[in-house]
Amino acid sequence: MLIDADLGGPNLHTFLGMRESDVDLGHFFTNQVTDLRDVAVPTPFSGLTLVRGTENVLFTANLNYYKKLKLIRHIKAFESKRVIIDIGTGAAYNCIDFFLLSNPGVLVINPEPTSIENAYYFLKSCIIRLLKMYINHFQLQNLVKVVSEQIQDTSRSIYSFLSEVISRDRHHADLLFRGLKRFRPCLIVNKARTTKDMLLGPSMVNVVQKYLVIDLEFLGSIPTDENVSVSLQDMTPYVRQNPDSEVTRAIASIAGKLEIRRTPAAEIR
């Protein structure tokens, strides 16, 4: 099942060649449909259903906390083992929480400074959010202030933040650190052109391990291909039109790695 949780700009249906639909996430959020499964519509592809994003983006892009929790609760209750959630860009709480809910969360970047910078901002935000969740869960009141300061002071590194947590409460810092180690996001480098672009993924894994104290798993690079744009204009999935291309092989290899990857999901509260 695909869920288009890019709440500010849903367009997954376009990639699948689907135009109108009677139901979408908007119906679910406004309680016109009570069960998320009833919003899932069949796609032209066997075995694949889609929960469409709503056209009323002004409403969903600023989704309130309770509606987000409702969506998360319904997603977690799905019997389907394979749910793919497409989230938007940026480090809004909605994006971060859907990312943390996923097992694994997959970051897709382009080999460009802007994209890499955003990826690091996003990962840092996820780490702080995750720590905040654990702190709330274990009711570590003495650490709440440290986290609030970190959220306000973006110039501080994760290292200095964790060091401060350790100095204040070593026992619980150990607990938080173990929780953090369970967060193992994945990385895909899209639109790779040069050898240097191909080396970017492993290099970022190396940098993240040293500076963000988490393990990032590199799934692979997808080479750039002008035909992607052609497929989009035809509103047909690229892999259907180009089953033997390098891009399709790269995607198949990444899908294979995801299939065998199993780690405990982060708990969303």
Binding site: P202, S203, N206, V208, Y211
Partner: peptide
């Protein structure tokens, strides 16, 4: 090789973080 590639001046891998 991976480490050197990551931290070379013209590498993008450290951009925005280091």
């Amino acid at each position: 090789t991976v480490g050197k590639n990551a931290f070379e001046e013209d590498s993008l891998a450290h951009y925005g973080l280091v």
